[in-house]
């Protein structure tokens, strides 16, 4: 699949503030549902999954979270990108209690794992690339971000 198709300017939110993780999942799920990307069950499933298997990731370049859940809750594949105004606490993946403050969320809507297997490695790889990181950090317009992400990931397999 062409990864460019996963990005949509309506699935990008920049500089938005959420009072909690709960509110973030609530609002983003509502957007995804209204655009036909997910089943109604997604909202509950993603919250439950995050509490059982947390997805916060502390890296050298930024703290991010990659919430995702089982394929049956996803109608069509997507990536929801949220750059937060104020950090939210997430639990570090692989732990039950290590809290990290996250300001970048990538919700992965995975429908067919075999076709999207390289997606997460590409994201991780790009974030560690200084040029990408610089551009990603400085773009503050949703439309511009969608174009940039489509361009960047579109050529990737």
């Amino acid at each position: 699949m062409n990864y460019a198709d996963l990005f949509d300017e309506e699935l990008i939110c920049i500089n938005k503030e959420f009072s909690s993780r709960e509110e973030l999942f609530e609002e983003l799920s509502n957007i995804l549902y209204s655009k036909g990307y997910i089943e109604k069950t997604f909202k509950y499933a993603i919250k439950k999954r995050e509490s059982e298997y947390p997805t916060g990731l502390a890296t050298d370049v930024m703290n991010l979270a990659i919430p995702h859940t089982d394929v049956e809750h996803v109608k069509k594949p997507f990536i929801f990108v949220a750059k937060l105004k104020k950090t939210l606490p997430f639990i570090q993946m692989g732990t039950n209690e290590d809290v990290i403050n996250v300001d970048n969320i990538f919700i992965l809507g995975i429908k067919d794992p075999s076709k999207q297997v390289n997606l997460l490695s590409k994201i991780m790889e790009k974030l560690q690339d200084g040029i990408f990181k610089g551009n990603y950090t400085s773009i503050s317009d949703e439309k511009e971000m969608a174009t940039y992400l489509k361009q960047t990931f579109g050529s990737e397999k």
Binding site: E52, H68, D70, M93, P113, S121
Partner: peptide
């Protein structure tokens, strides 16, 4: 192994 086997474990395995 990861929680669901759809994203993280596949990524780590390929790495």
């Amino acid at each position: 192994a990861c929680g669901s086997g759809v994203a993280t474990s596949q990524t780590v395995a390929s790495k």
